[in-house]
Computed example of a mutant assay.
Amino acid sequence: MRTVALVAAITFVIDQLTKWLVVHVMSLDTRLAIDVWPPFVNFRMAWNDGINFGLLGSGDEAAKWILISVALGIVLFVLVWLRRDPPGWPGLVAGGLLIGGALGNVVDRLLYGAVADFLNMSCCGIDNPFAFNVADIAIFAGALGLVLLPGRKPGKKGS
């Protein structure tokens, strides 16, 4: 479980550091857009008070607390799951990514009332209107890793 805690802590710090740099140091919250490497990588400020792609966003205070509760519930579920059926080192890393990303987005909701999304990527004539953040990447990679890296198989001892 040390691996999970370490990866979660590193993911959380990187997520919060990138948000702080982009939103506050680079003033993306007032500039709203910074072209980094157009059209491939751009910063576009988006305050997401819902789930992925702003779904279920209402700006309602109760919705914020429900989403925080759901995220913390998922973190607790993943921790219990990893403890009961440790998946090996790659799976523990995946669990840490998911947990660190989820906690990063929870902190955003507590600090700002919404998740700070800023990464925008487009390519090949497709103009992507959506933004995301480091926590979103970690959550996606962690969930994918947990699905693809199952726990240990029950085996016979002493055979």
Results as ranks from 00 to 15, higher is better:
residue 89 W to L: 14
residue 97 L to Y: 05
residue 116 A to H: 15
residue 150 P to W: 11
residue 91 G to W: 02
residue 118 F to V: 04
residue 98 L to E: 10
residue 125 G to V: 15
residue 134 V to I: 12
residue 130 F to I: 10
residue 130 F to L: 11
residue 124 C to T: 12
residue 117 D to G: 09
residue 101 G to S: 01
residue 144 L to G: 05
residue 98 L to G: 09
residue 134 V to M: 09
residue 135 A to E: 07
residue 151 G to I: 05
residue 109 R to C: 04
residue 96 G to I: 15
residue 87 P to Y: 09
residue 112 Y to Q: 12
residue 152 R to E: 12
residue 118 F to A: 06
residue 123 C to Q: 09
residue 137 I to E: 01
residue 95 G to H: 09
residue 87 P to A: 11
residue 138 A to R: 13
residue 121 M to K: 00
residue 140 F to H: 13
residue 118 F to R: 09
residue 113 G to K: 09
residue 134 V to T: 08
residue 94 A to G: 06
residue 132 F to S: 03
residue 118 F to C: 04
residue 121 M to I: 05
residue 125 G to K: 13
residue 94 A to M: 06
residue 134 V to L: 06
residue 133 N to V: 06
residue 136 D to W: 10
residue 152 R to F: 00
residue 130 F to T: 12
residue 110 L to Q: 02
residue 116 A to T: 15
residue 119 L to K: 02
residue 137 I to P: 00
residue 123 C to F: 15
residue 131 A to T: 13
residue 108 D to Y: 01
residue 95 G to D: 04
residue 100 G to D: 08
residue 152 R to T: 01
residue 97 L to D: 09
residue 84 R to N: 14
residue 115 V to S: 14
residue 94 A to W: 03
residue 93 V to H: 03
residue 89 W to Y: 13
residue 137 I to R: 03
residue 120 N to K: 08
residue 100 G to K: 03
residue 99 I to A: 02
residue 149 L to Y: 05
residue 107 V to Q: 04
residue 152 R to A: 03
residue 96 G to D: 14
residue 123 C to K: 12
residue 117 D to A: 04
residue 106 V to M: 03
residue 136 D to A: 14
